[in-house]
Amino acid sequence: MAMPLAWRRARLDERRPQTATARTLLFTVPGWPGHLPGQHVDVRLTADDGYQAVRSYSLAAPADADRIELGVQAVADGEVSPYLADDLPTGAEVEIRGPLGNWFVWRREQTEPTLLIAGGSGVVPLAAMIRAHREARSTSPFHLLYSVRTPADIWYGEELTDHREPHLDVQVLYTRQAPPGSPRVPGRLTATDLEKPAARLEPTSPVYVCGPTGFVETAGNLLVDLGRDPATIRTERFG
């Protein structure tokens, strides 16, 4: 019988803005058991009267001893995300339980070319995979297709877009407004966007898709239409 996952004290060390509404939160979690890139945690908040609320957030980086990094997108009218994004004081604690999710993960032993497809804040668990890939000095080709509305909506800024890694390709797809001079007309993900990245994959190569439900549905259907084996496509949806 597996041990139940414990709730652990987690202290907020640092908060970094990613976009106008998205934040990176860095926590110290004494006793953190480590995790795989792609996994998530439950975060529990407690009000003064004992009321508690729990939500799941993706881990944005590989484990660094007892330090973990979460990506939080403030949802308008959300019960938890606006508090985490802007109100939880640095140095204060929440409770965290995890790691969770053993399906949407990348392991450094994987050597096939890998396609990552992110819609908006769905980039968070994929960023953990990219960072783990970098840490491991993996030579397996990684390709990130990252769909955002405008340049201001890009998370992790230059770390993703200004990379100089030989085994990582990043392509940003703008849906509303692209930077001046972009060859691609702004718009949603299409089969054309996926043809070249998919052609670089091997039949068994994994494709990881994370984003809002509509985005993930579209990407999954397009990949299957392009002949990808559905069993090689791993998805994580939110909203």
């Binding site: 908040l45 508690q52 019960e79 939880l88």
Partner: peptide, 25 residues
């Protein structure tokens, strides 16, 4: 006073009998 998440208030508590633990509507 809770030692966690200072200043967190949360939503209405009226759904307690209908909502399993750890869930939100």
């Amino acid at each position: 006073m809770s030692s966690f998440s200072p200043g967190f208030r949360g939503r209405a508590r009226s759904l307690a009998d209908r909502l399993p633990p750890g869930q939100y509507p």
